[in-house]
Design a protein around this nucleic acid. Structure first.
Lengths: 153, 153
DNA sequence: AATGAAATTTCATAGGA
DNA sequence: TCCTATGAAATTTCATT
């Protein structure tokens, strides 16, 4: 973080919202020529500031616009049960995010489903076969207000 | 969704996890030459299946590795209050995601902060000045288990 | 650490199977 | 819808400042 100058930060902010600018375009934006821009970006990639580049797809178009936050309590809290849970969750495609959290529940999952029927099937059949799970609580997303896909710095 | 053939879906899956492959590389992966791959991707972009391309940054490197799910209840539930809330939330950089949800709370926010002190400051000073908010409940992320950044289809 | 030019690679389009 | 071919444009390297 300390070896980044304002130009690096500016490049990162731009690329975090749109990674399709050419080096020439980026060069104009940060008042440099294309080659230092190229070298800066390569450095930011190598140093791990930029983890990867991805395409953002429109979930609605794939009939996957039904988002649910699913809170999960484990049956017991030992290392083995935890590891089993993590391994199982990694295999379930509907689960796009999973975090270990504070509070009444142990984990929160962000789940993408087609509709309520699909979600119900997910809970019964997919989560239902994860034996480490004690109980669940589902919170349904009615609409997306903001999604920046990235961090602020 | 119906005008997508298996090759389109394969390309989307690849690009959703890594958008830096060249058309030549993609062509090999899907057993085509570069130009139909190029045409397919352009079509997927134009039809909105691909919304945009972004760089994924490492939040830890920016000292923004402290994630919190912040649940929010509005003071009242009328259109004006709701609109005010949304407008205010859009302006707060720490809030990277916001959804209108079912259940006891009205909204869930995904918040990135540097540390607990920064989060405390966020709650008191940033959320504190959003007058439409009635009450909040914070759930702290202890570790990230899974984050695919994208949908399954 | 940036510039500008040169070399390399990829993109983007056109014509034909 | 695909292929090959081609010129344009972008990336990447490098000598110079």
């Amino acid at each position: 973080m300390n070896d980044l100058d304002p130009t690096d930060l500016q490049l990162l902010r731009i690329l975090a919202s749109n990674a399709k600018y050419t080096n020439k375009e980026l060069a104009q934006m940060v008042n440099l020529s294309a080659s230092p821009v190229f070298e800066r970006i390569k450095r930011l990639e190598n140093q791990g500031y930029i983890k990867k580049y991805i395409a953002i797809l429109d979930a609605e178009k794939f009939n996957q616009g039904f988002m649910v936050f699913c809170n999960i309590k484990l049956k017991q809290h030992n290392k083995d049960i935890g590891h089993h849970f993590v391994a199982d969750i990694m295999e379930i495609d509907e689960v796009v995010e999973c975090y270990n959290i504070s509070g009444d529940y142990d984990f929160i999952l962000k789940v993408y489903a087609r509709d309520m029927k699909h979600y119900q099937d997910f809970v019964f059949n997919k989560l239902g076969s994860v034996t480490s799970i004690g109980s669940t609580h589902s919170t349904f997303v009615m609409s997306e207000i903001k999604n920046t896909h990235n961090i602020h710095f």
